[in-house]
Design a binder for these strands. Structure first.
Lengths: 136, 136
DNA sequence: ATCGCACACGTTATACCATTACACAATCAT
DNA sequence: ATGATTGTGTAATGGTATAACGTGTGCGAT
């Protein structure tokens, strides 16, 4: 591992398997769903999934959705670099979309800074109705 | 219950007990912590807590912190009305502070609206370091 | 070369968070 | 009174996450 930018090429076997499961999924997956999908590949215990997820999140390849207790592959080719990500979560169809707005990041940081708080990581999850479900 | 504005006076016995536990706590409490604190008052099962919490959250008297799986009493006397709340969560001392910024709400709504998404509820949780911990 | 270290991995057990299902009681409008 | 709604109590279960242990492997420093 030559530097701190990770791509899928750098991953260990377990990390690759978990990343693969998330990448081919259409939406977020829970750790236990991933476990079930990987039993054929030798996965036996939750910890194998959680350990891989921890690293993938650390590398910025995967995001954790706090309000769903689930995980999604980052939709940006190289996620490293944009500190702020927001998600929309449709309560009707379950669709999750990743929004990137650098200005939002700045705004949140400065809002927090007003009370002397330094932001390290931010969670922004918007629940509501997506365009398709509103139309249907 | 004459209208849809709830205050602590409107609460049922269980709701009052849970509200009381949260109100006198210095920070967020998990449902099971609340359960333990209320055993002396007859609480026996998690569901008693969760049912009360559901209502209190619905009434806007309590907020749920998704990233902590915990709950806090709203710090504003009358929380009903400000649609958007953001939290700072200090990773060092655990302190949780509620920020209100109406402009942020507008901004998030319009950001989502750009992709046709209608926001019903938003979660904004900023993790980092509070002023005191940065100074210490 | 081999020792020590860091790191990924495997397994079991456990802790923690939340809901389902069923039954009973209180309240209120008709 | 009756039925609808809401709150309550209890037991059982399901879902999420970590602790604690041990093993193996790669690799740099001595």
């Amino acid at each position: 591992m030559s530097d701190h930018v990770h791509t899928t090429a750098d991953l260990t076997k377990n990390q690759s398997l978990v990343m693969g499961a998330l990448a081919k999924a259409s939406g977020p997956l829970s750790a236990y769903t991933i476990l079930d999908e990987l039993r054929d590949h030798g996965f036996r215990a939750p910890l194998q999934v959680y350990r891989a997820l921890d690293k993938l999140v650390e590398y910025g390849l995967v995001h954790r959705l706090e309000s769903l207790n689930a995980f999604v592959a980052c939709s940006h080719a190289e996620c490293e670099g944009h500190g702020q990500t927001a998600f929309t979560i449709c309560q009707s169809c379950g669709d999750v979309t990743e929004l990137a707005d650098d200005d939002l990041a700045v705004r949140l940081k400065s809002l927090a800074a007003r009370s002397g708080f330094t932001v390290r990581h931010s969670t922004v999850e918007l629940r509501g109705t997506c365009r398709d479900c509103a139309a249907g």
